[in-house]
């Protein structure tokens, strides 16, 4: 009822989205007829085999790729406008910290570019370092930190300028499973604390099910959405929720969706 009285516009809305890459071997349809609505505060995972367009879709939201058809809006604007309004922070698969900057210096990078004052930079760096539990590591250089800590620093960097949307492209794909479990827990905590909208690309079914309120299953050639699952799991998710019946049922449905995508080939 609240929704009808005070309808919140969707954060991200794609309608009939098409994206064709022109390559030397001819055109490649990376996205075909993608329709999706992401609401404020959603945690959305994109899962599918490589070539299914999940990363391309995330990059299109971030205006790093430009759709060749259909419409895509971010906060009601075009992705390019949304970028200028600092609507999103982006986390890549590799932490990509500058080796010549300290951890603080790396987090400061977007703030410098966006022209925040020195004092504002300092307070924001301190705040996001605390948020990803890296306080005390600000003066260290990236090589002095483990891979997991580096990725946390890169998340802090994406959070530093208070974007509403956090886009994460397989952020923990290169980390081992133990570290990944911990970071997944931390991302959930972070999400609960900040109320951000998160788009999360992964190829791990348990990761997608554990994290998301909405799971988007995609399949390749051409890249398209085969299933969208709204997770019935509660917002509070201890790690052992992964042994619950609901969790296993959702994981099963995701697996079915992935398999169905392949049957079409």
């Amino acid at each position: 009822m609240k929704d009808t009285l005070n309808p919140q516009p969707p954060v991200i809305e794609a309608q009939g989205l098409q994206l064709v890459f022109q390559t030397a071997d001819g055109p490649v349809q990376a996205l075909k007829d993608v329709n999706l609505v992401i609401n404020r505060g959603d945690f959305v995972s994109f899962i599918g085999p490589s070539g299914c367009g999940k990363t391309t879709f995330l990059r299109a939201i971030a205006a790093l790729e430009h759709p060749t058809g259909g419409t895509l809006t971010v906060n009601g604007m075009t992705p390019d406008e949304a970028r200028r309004k600092r609507a999103y922070g982006y986390v890549f698969q590799a932490a990509g910290l500058y080796p010549w900057r300290t951890i603080s210096g790396n987090i400061r990078l977007p703030l410098e570019i966006m022209g925040f004052s020195k004092a504002e930079q300092d307070s924001r760096v301190a705040r996001v370092l605390d948020l990803v539990e890296l306080s005390g590591f600000g003066k260290k250089f990236p090589w002095q930190l483990s891979g997991g800590m580096q990725q946390r620093a890169s998340i802090a960097r994406a959070l530093a300028f208070d974007a509403d949307i956090l886009l994460m492209d397989e952020p923990f794909g290169a980390l081992d499973e133990i570290v990944r479990d911990r970071l997944n827990e931390e991302v959930l905590k972070l999400w609960a604390r900040t109320g951000k909208t998160i788009g999360f690309v992964t190829h791990s079914i348990p990761e997608a099910v554990y994290l998301s309120t909405k799971i988007v299953v995609m399949s390749p050639r051409p890249g398209r959405i085969t299933d969208v699952i709204d997770s019935p799991l509660p917002k509070e998710r201890p790690l052992d929720i992964r042994d619950s019946r609901e969790f296993i049922e959702i994981a099963h449905r995701v697996r079915e969706g992935l398999r169905a995508g392949h049957l079409d080939d």
């Binding site: 990059r59 200028r84 600092r86 999103y88 922070g89 300028f161």
Partner: peptide, 15 residues
């Protein structure tokens, strides 16, 4: 990737 990262900050050529 590093160039894309700066793009997401809206960094210009000089930055």
């Amino acid at each position: 990737m590093q160039l894309d990262l700066l793009k997401t900050y809206g960094a210009g050529e000089w930055a």
